[in-house]
């Protein structure tokens, strides 16, 4: 479904993503791991062009994403759910509005949008909080709103950029549970950037290891952590063992 070839992104002299190739099949759950600053976020943002890559090719269902015009790009983005590390909720809007406003702006009638939003909120267990504002929610709840917002557009592809990285350990669990549930019950294609090794082992169809802007290893979770080939892989192996 997704095909990335020779993806490159450079910030000044620093090369954040250095010629990444990646293929993701429909319905597959791919977990990307790697040390901090290795270019995971940059790469995943390039997929829906929140970051404009310098070179390379991104194809979704054979369609080049990089050559889309503004209008088509927006239409494409509406089919991709993006979950941010910092949740990126609209502080001004309540939970329900946060989950439905983009649907209304995309032309979905209000009642329909509201129904979809409520359904999405139910999936993340927040149906009772729809009138609260983000500031009055815990970090875990906020991230669940973020997930519901992504789900509300019925995405064909979900991009997760370290959804639990800014949560404290107690709250991480509730978010990971929701994510696991989603991966199990839906058939949505997912690319998940995370440092949660346990979670990766449980949900990943495939794990990609990155280091210094490059993909250094990929394979099934068991294969990678049983017999890592790369430096990074070996570090993760030791982490699991301890």
């Amino acid at each position: 479904m997704l095909k990335i070839r020779g993806l490159r992104k450079q910030y000044g002299k620093h090369i954040a993503v250095d010629g990444v190739d990646l293929d993701v099949r429909r319905g597959e759950t791919v977990v990307i791991m790697g040390p901090s600053g290795c270019g995971k976020s940059t790469m995943i943002r390039c997929v829906n062009r929140l970051t404009e890559p310098d070179a390379g090719e991104i194809l979704v269902d054979g369609k080049s994403i990089l050559s889309l015009d503004d209008q088509s790009l927006r239409e494409f983005r509406r089919t991709v759910g993006f979950v941010f590390q910092q949740f990126n909720l609209i502080a001004r809007l309540n939970v329900l509005d946060n989950v439905m406003f983009h649907l209304v702006l995309a032309g979905v009638p209000r009642e329909q949008a509201e129904a979809r939003a409520r359904k999405a909120l139910a999936k993340v267990g927040l149906e009772s909080s729809e009138h609260k504002h983000p500031a009055n929610l815990s970090g875990g709840e906020q991230q669940r709103v973020g997930i519901a917002r992504a789900l509300a557009s019925n995405p064909q592809l979900m991009l997760w950029d370290e959804p639990t990285a800014s949560l404290d350990p107690i709250l991480i669990g509730e978010v990971l549970d929701v994510m696991e549930e989603l991966v199990r019950t839906t058939n949505t294609t997912s690319i998940i950037v995370t440092h949660e090794v346990g979670f990766a082992l449980k949900v990943a169809d495939r794990i990609i290891l990155m280091d210094k802007g490059k993909v250094v290893e990929e394979g099934s979770p068991r294969a990678i952590f049983a017999d890592p080939q790369s430096e990074v892989g070996k570090k993760y192996q030791r982490l699991i063992a301890s």
Partner: peptide
Amino acid sequence: DEIMAGLALGLNNAQIMHEIVIPD
């Protein structure tokens, strides 16, 4: 972060201005 969310959700610049930037 809010503008970024708007972009990711497929809002156009005018919508981002009207719904996110200006009210903020």
